[in-house]
Design a binder for these strands. Sequence first.
DNA 1: CGCTAACTTGAGGTCTATCAAGAAAAGTGG
DNA 2: CCACTTTTCTTGATAGACCTCAAGTTAGCG
Lengths: 248, 248
Amino acid sequence: MTLHEVPTLLHRCGDCPIRHRAVCARCDSEELTTLEQIKYYRSYQAGQTVIWSGDKMDFVASVVTGIATLTQTLEDGRRQMVGLLLPSDFVGRPGRQTVAYDVTATTDLLMCCFRRKPFEDMMQKTPHVGQRLLEMTLDELDAAREWMLLLGRKTAREKIASLLAIIARRDASLKLRDAKGPLTFDLPLTREEMADYLGLTLETVSRQVSALKRDGVIALEGKRHVIVNDFARLLEEAGDDSDGGLPV
Amino acid sequence: MTLHEVPTLLHRCGDCPIRHRAVCARCDSEELTTLEQIKYYRSYQAGQTVIWSGDKMDFVASVVTGIATLTQTLEDGRRQMVGLLLPSDFVGRPGRQTVAYDVTATTDLLMCCFRRKPFEDMMQKTPHVGQRLLEMTLDELDAAREWMLLLGRKTAREKIASLLAIIARRDASLKLRDAKGPLTFDLPLTREEMADYLGLTLETVSRQVSALKRDGVIALEGKRHVIVNDFARLLEEAGDDSDGGLPV
DNA sequence: CGCTAACTTGAGGTCTATCAAGAAAAGTGG
DNA sequence: CCACTTTTCTTGATAGACCTCAAGTTAGCG
C-alpha cells in the first residue's frame, strides 16, 4: 500500500480505528484538529524495516493497522524481540532522537506519523497527549516485566503456551468475543519470529507447537491457524496464575 | 532506621540527595514547596518487604537511599527479578492502585512518599512532575528491553559480566570517577538475588563468578567486594556492543 | 513445474539445573 | 572472646532441557 492509497476517511481522526486507544485517546475535538494538521501517513510492506537501531528518527508514530516488531541484536547475530507493536501502539520517544532497536513491519503496516518537533510542542501545550503517553508507557513497562519473567524462568513449553494465550486473548478482544468458547486465530509470526520473541530456537518452537498439538492443548489447520478448545487448559500450560495475568 | 531518625535536613527538598534525578527534578521552588507539604518519609530494614504483589498501594514514592528490588513469582516458586530500584528511582503507578510485583528492601531503605491522591492532583496541576515521570518511565522501559535481550539470549558468563558492568558503571557515576582506571565496588546483591535477576540458579552464578575470577577478568576481596582492572575486558565478556550500551 | 521459504523431525552435544556435601562468613548467646 | 547456629557461598557429580547440525517435508509463487 503506498501513500496515495490510504483511505481518505482515515484523514479524519474521528473515524480512525485506533482513535480510542492510541496516544490521542484523551484529546478533545480541538486538540484533534491540531493533530490532524501535523499528522501524515506512512505505509510499509511486510518484511520492510521501518528504522534501524541507532538511526535518527525524526518522527514518532502510532500503528494504525498491521504489526511491527522491535528487536535487539548482539554483535554475533543473536536476536531478541523486545516488543510487539499492535494497532494503537506508539513508536518513538519524545526527547530522544535515536532509537535503540530495529523496528520491522511483520505484516503490511500503516502508521500515523508526527514529525518530532511539532509533536513535542503539542505535548508542552496540551497535557492530554503526555498523560496518555505516560499511561501507555507504564502499560508497556508492565508488559515488558511480565515478559522478563517468561524469558528468565519459563520452560519452552510454557513460553509457547504463554505466547499463544496472549495472541488468542488479544484476537478475541479485537473480535469482541468472550474467551469461553473455542477460539481460533492466525499466528502473525513465523516460527523464527516466535523463537526470537521467546528466547528459543525455531526448532524448539516447532517441536513444542507439535507437542501441544499432540497433547490436545491446541489444534492446527495448516501451519498458522490455531484452534484452542479449552482456553483454561492453555493458561495452565502457560504456568501463570489461574487468573491469567493482565486483562486484554 | 526509624522514622524519627530521618535527618531533618532531608525535609528540605533543596538539600535532598536525589533532588536532581528524581521525579521532582524539573520542579521549580514553588512546586517543591507544594511537594514538601504532602511528602513524608518511610524507612525499611534490609530484607523487609515494602509491598506484596497484588496489594493495594496507597502511596507512590522515590527511593532516597538504599536499594529495593521488584520481583515476580510463578505459582511453583520460580522467581524473576524484574527491576532494581536505586536512589532516585520511582515506585508506584499513578492511576492504578495495585502493584504487580513484590517490592523488597535489599539494603536499609529510605523512601520519600506521597499519598496517591494528592500526588495525582499535583500531576494534573503542574506538568513538570508528569513530564519527568514520563521521561523516567521511558528510561526504565529501555532498560527493561535491554534486560530482555540479556535474559533471552546471553550465556551465563555474559549475564554475570553484564550485571557486574552495570553495577560498576553506576557505582563509578555515584563516586564521580571515570571508568578508565581500576574500579572497585561492593555487590549489593547476594548470589541468589543475582540469580533471580539473571534468570539463573545461585550455583551457576557462583561458578561463573569463580570462572571470571580465575580468568583474571575480575578479582575478589571477600565474597562481595569486586575489583575490575580492565573495564573494556569486562564489557567484552558481557557480549555487548563495544560502546557498552546506554550511558549510565 | 521447479524454486524458495517456512516448517518439521531426528541425532547428538552442550550448557545450565538439580542434587548433594562441605567451607566460609556472619550472627547469637553464654 | 569463644562455641554454636544460621546464612551465604563454593564445588562436584549427574541429569535434563534446549541447541546445533542435518535431512527431509510442505506450502507458496513465479
